[in-house]
Amino acid sequence: MKQYVVDAFSDKVFGGNPAAVCVMDNWLSDEIMMKITRENNLSETAFAVKEGEDYRLRWFTTGGEIDLCGHATLATAYVITKFIEPEVTEVRFQTHSGLLVVVSKGDFLEMDFPSYELKKVEVIEAMVEAIGVRPLEVYLGRDLLCVLESEEEVRNLNPNMEKLKALDGQLLHVTAKGKEFDCVSRSFAPKLNVPEDPVCGSGHCHIIPFWAGRLGKNDLVAYQASSRGGTLYCEYQGDRVKMSGKAALYSTADINF
């Protein structure tokens, strides 16, 4: 079985967020897909099978299957439009989060994702101890979103991974207003055995709704300030978020089992 590793939200390898992608004729067992995921040891491995005109898409972390993943969706669309069906410009994915559509626009791939409703929650000492700084504001959707005072705080953050596991939310995102970008962020997922997610698409389904409201505009350029870094071109549409980015092929391999 062929597997691709794609660096998503980057125009060159060694940037953005790497995802492994397997586009298959038939589904493997969940056990085998988890074994492949753990062997890859990346933040996500995506598995897709064409069903009718659409693809069924599932995402796995080393800690288990998740309900939404942006960078692995972009990576899968990149593989399909480059190697599987190079004549297509739109890929439709049936997923645990409903229908996701990715459109190829030149060098960019534009994803249409659901946005999360954010509920403001109290800043508690457990957050301060886990994150290492006191957030200005905290919101809860699927994940916990902490708004920090400055871009420097986001970039310099060194959270306690064990203490993060005790906080609400599946992932933790920290964000601040950017200097060169509308906003900057970092994402941490120790509950999924992913200490830091280099560029988190589903995280921006929390981050973009917040900053669209705070900045009073719907078109935003976001930067994920991990060591790899990644840029997302986003449009907030209320219950949806459009995210565009580039991708680069790192490797292809044959999996033997």
Score class of each variant (00 low, 15 high):
Tyr4Arg: 06
Tyr4Lys: 05
Tyr4Ser: 07
Val5Met: 02
Val6His: 04
Val6Gly: 07
Val6Tyr: 04
Asp7Ile: 14
Asp7Ala: 12
Asp7Val: 13
Asp7Arg: 13
Asp7Leu: 13
Ala8Lys: 06
Ala8Phe: 11
Ala8Thr: 10
Phe9Asp: 03
Ser10Ile: 14
Ser10Trp: 10
Asp11Met: 10
Asp11Tyr: 10
Asp11Ala: 14
Lys12Ala: 08
Lys12Asp: 04
Lys12Val: 14
Val13Gln: 09
Val13Arg: 13
Val13Pro: 08
Phe14Tyr: 15
Gly15Gln: 05
Gly15Thr: 05
Gly15His: 04
Gly15Pro: 01
Gly16Leu: 13
Gly16Val: 11
Gly16Ile: 12
Gly16Met: 11
Gly16Glu: 05
Asn17Trp: 07
Asn17Tyr: 07
Pro18Ser: 02
Ala19Leu: 02
Ala20Tyr: 11
Ala20His: 10
Val21Ala: 07
Val21Lys: 06
Cys22Leu: 15
Cys22Thr: 12
Val23Cys: 13
Val23Gln: 13
Val23Arg: 14
Met24Cys: 06
Asp25Pro: 03
Asp25His: 09
Asp25Tyr: 08
Asp25Val: 01
Asp25Gly: 05
Asn26Met: 07
Asn26Gly: 03
Trp27Ile: 11
Trp27Val: 12
Trp27Cys: 12
Leu28Met: 15
Leu28Pro: 07
Leu28Cys: 07
Ser29Pro: 09
Ser29Asp: 13
Ser29Asn: 09
Ser29Ala: 10
Glu31Arg: 14
Ile32Leu: 15
Ile32Gly: 05
Met33Lys: 14
Met34Ser: 14
Met34Leu: 15
Lys35Gln: 15
Lys35Asn: 11
Lys35Trp: 03
Lys35Ile: 05
Ile36Asp: 03
Ile36Tyr: 01
Ile36Asn: 05
Thr37Arg: 06
Thr37Ser: 02
Arg38Ser: 06
Arg38Tyr: 02
Arg38Cys: 10
Arg38Ile: 09
Arg38Leu: 03
Asn40Pro: 06
Asn41Ile: 11
Leu42His: 01
Leu42Asp: 00
Ser43Leu: 09
Glu44Trp: 01
Thr45Pro: 10
Ala46Asp: 02
Ala46Ser: 13
Ala46Phe: 01
Phe47Gly: 00
Phe47Ala: 00
Ala48Met: 08
Val49Ile: 03
Val49Pro: 01
Val49Tyr: 02
Val49Ala: 02
Val49Lys: 08
Val49Arg: 08
Val49Trp: 03
Val49Thr: 00
Lys50Tyr: 08
Glu51Gln: 13
Glu51Trp: 02
Glu51Lys: 14
Gly52Ser: 05
Gly52His: 05
Gly52Phe: 02
Gly52Trp: 03
Glu53Met: 12
Glu53Asp: 15
Glu53Asn: 15
Asp54Val: 01
Asp54Pro: 01
Asp54Cys: 10
Tyr55Thr: 13
Tyr55Leu: 14
Arg56Tyr: 05
Arg56Lys: 15
Arg56Thr: 12
Leu57Met: 09
Leu57Asp: 11
Arg58Phe: 00
Arg58Ile: 00
